[in-house]
């Protein structure tokens, strides 16, 4: 298996030569088709990691390679979703989901002529995440959980090879969150997309990911890497098994240690 994302010994400092060092000596690899989770104490540079991989920031030292190419500018093969769904309120949900297609070079010139095909694709995605028929509604007519589902559709509409999720379920209630874990689990299984999930929620990480990276406090680097042994497809019941809880417990201990060191 080839690496889709490979980060080598990366330093990223904000605000000039004596600014904050956000990550230092960061090294990690994510295989194609893999579901990776990144956990760590707050302020460990997880968001910086997002921006490095998507090409929004270029590191001062080290190399970031995505899909075989060194990242020197924004890479459009990535879809992103944040905790804040950032749906545009003047567009319907469907129009929001189609927004990336108006931007990505590969699609923007085809959009007008092939509108129907793209709309079908969007409707299809909406159905997968359980939002069938709400495409014509405005985002503010949807609940928080529904908006986050639509947000996932928007991140996936241009068929990205890599999906970067920055705590996408942070603001949701426990039950909605579990529902969306299943949605993202099924999306990953069905679309074969590579996913990097940045999260604070250790149970979320263990339930969803194949591999978990534990980051240290600022300046962030990967202190530990775990392979999650549980077989797919995983059921929510898994979370009540001893092996699952043991793994969460171990992760919890490591992050607590990483915090103390800081």
């Amino acid at each position: 298996m080839s690496h889709l994302v490979s980060i080598d010994n990366v330093d990223m400092r904000y605000g000039g030569a004596d600014g904050t060092l956000a990550v230092s000596g960061l090294t990690m690899r994510v295989d194609k088709g893999e579901f990776a989770a990144v956990v760590g104490p707050s302020g460990c540079g997880k968001s910086t990691l997002m921006k490095l991989v998507t090409g929004l920031h270029i590191p001062q030292a080290g190399v970031v390679i995505v899909a075989g190419q060194q990242v020197t500018k924004p890479v459009s093969i990535v879809g992103m979703a944040f905790q804040n769904p950032t749906m545009l309120p003047w567009r319907t949900t469907l129009e929001n989901i189609l927004l990336p297609l108006e931007i990505v070079e590969r699609h923007r010139h085809r959009l007008r002529a092939n509108k129907k095909e793209y709309i079908e694709k969007a409707e299809n995605l909406l159905e997968i995440v359980g939002l069938k028929g709400v495409g014509s509604k405005f985002p503010w007519q949807l609940s928080g959980g529904m908006q986050q589902r639509a947000n996932l559709c928007r991140a996936l509409i241009h068929e990205p090879e890599l999906l970067m999720l920055d705590e996408p379920f942070g603001a949701l209630d426990a039950f909605t969150r579990e529902e969306l874990w299943c949605v993202i689990r099924d999306l990953h299984a069905a679309q074969g997309v590579t996913i990097v999930l940045v999260t604070h929620d250790l149970r979320e990480a263990v339930f969803l990911a194949d591999r978990i990276f534990v980051m240290s406090a600022r300046p962030g680097k990967v202190v530990k890497e775990h392979t999650v042994p549980f077989e797919r497809p995983r059921d929510l019941e898994l979370m009540y098994e001893t092996a699952f809880n043991d793994m969460v417990h171990v992760l919890h201990g490591e992050i607590a240690k990483a915090r103390v060191v800081a």
Binding site: K51, G55, P74, M80, F82, T86, P100, I103, H158
Partner: peptide, 14 residues
């Protein structure tokens, strides 16, 4: 403009 919105779009090459 929300920085997240800008990030999402810039990452797509906007």
């Amino acid at each position: 403009i929300e920085p997240e919105t800008e990030d999402v779009l810039r990452a797509l090459g906007a």
